[in-house]
């Protein structure tokens, strides 16, 4: 019997990622990881790409992980968990290990997932490993100091897409990795956000129950890189969903479904304004970038509604 997704039940579970790690105050990543690992009742084995989560949780000789965990390199969270999961299948098949319904989960940031690790991720999804890949997506290379990635949105300031005299932030939109993952025809792919923890945990349960690979893209606020106060990680996540900047949806066996629809879609400014990385977009000379970003968010939202069979 799975633990009910109720706070008064969930809080009794032991933390699989303990306190004492060195992630920044207000970082969304450990909140997301704890939500995910709390959602899973079965034994888990984790693989982690190089990045903030990895360096901050395992400074030798310490570890914040109370479950088996492996890190090999930046681009290898998916390929490493492929090897772990294949060994599990092999040993169980040969009777060398008891079958205990292990769940295999890989964590990677957007740099390790959208960019350098996309090939390994694609390989893992195509080969059909029974593993969940989670991208905790803070929309830039935060661990190396806020450089742009394939997940960085149009117009955003980063240290490698700075706001200069002739170029106002990142000139290209982010790629739609959730759709790319879903295009592998895997049993389950979804987008989630930590403010809606019940939605996120339900998705995790569906993902790890799938008989095959699954992918979860979770928006993960980084106050250092997004340039916002340390106490609004959850609020900014909520605004991302309410403005349809980060829609919450799932693709289950090819069926697209919206899991949250804002009653009244908020203007994109509500999400952008609290963040220093978008501050320049509110200057008169950059208004066209803000409008372009708005148009993109609206276009992607309409496209998603259509895919999900929802009315506009």
């Amino acid at each position: 019997m799975a633990t009910a997704l109720k706070l008064k039940e969930l809080y009794k579970k032991e933390d699989r990622l303990t306190s004492g790690h060195r992630l920044c105050a207000g970082c969304a990543a450990p909140i997301i990881v704890r939500q995910i690992l709390t959602a899973i009742d079965e034994p888990v084995v984790l693989s982690n790409a190089t990045g903030c989560l990895e360096v901050s949780t395992t400074i030798y000789p310490y570890t914040a992980w109370q479950v088996p965990w492996i890190h090999t390199a930046f681009e290898t969270a998916a390929s490493t968990i492929s090897g772990v999961e294949a060994m599990y299948r092999s040993l169980v098949k040969q009777g060398k290990l008891e079958e205990r319904n292990f769940k295999f989960v890989a964590f990677g940031g957007d740099g390790g997932t959208y960019d350098i690790g996309i090939q390994a991720l694609s390989g893992m999804l195509e080969r059909g490993h029974r593993a969940l890949y989670v991208c905790y997506n803070n929309e830039a290379y935060m661990n190396t100091g806020i450089q742009r990635s394939g997940a960085t949105p149009l117009g955003a300031w980063t240290t490698t897409s700075p706001v200069g005299k002739v170029i106002p932030g990142k000139p290209r939109p982010r790629k739609d990795l959730t759709a790319i993952a879903a295009a592998h025809d895997i049993p389950y792919a979804a987008q989630a956000s930590p403010h809606n923890w019940r939605d996120l945990m339900r998705k995790v349960r569906k993902a790890v129950a799938a008989d095959g690979p699954s992918f979860l893209n979770v928006l993960s606020s980084c106050n250092r890189g997004w340039r916002h106060p340390t106490d609004i990680a959850i609020e900014i996540s909520r605004l991302a969903a309410e403005t349809c900047y980060w829609p919450l949806y799932e693709v289950e066996d090819g069926e697209w479904k919206l899991t949250y629809r804002p009653k009244k879609k908020l203007p994109i400014e509500e999400f952008l304004q609290p963040q220093g990385r978008f501050r320049h977009l509110f200057r008169e000379e950059n208004k066209h970038v803000l409008e372009e970003l708005r148009a993109q968010v609206d276009r992607k939202w309409r496209q998603l509604l259509k895919r999900c069979g929802e009315e506009e």
Binding site: S47, A73, S79, G83, A86
Partner: peptide, 11 residues
């Protein structure tokens, strides 16, 4: 990478 993961998984 898969070999390293598999090896760490004890086979």
């Amino acid at each position: 990478a898969a070999c390293i993961g598999a090896s760490a998984a004890g086979g």
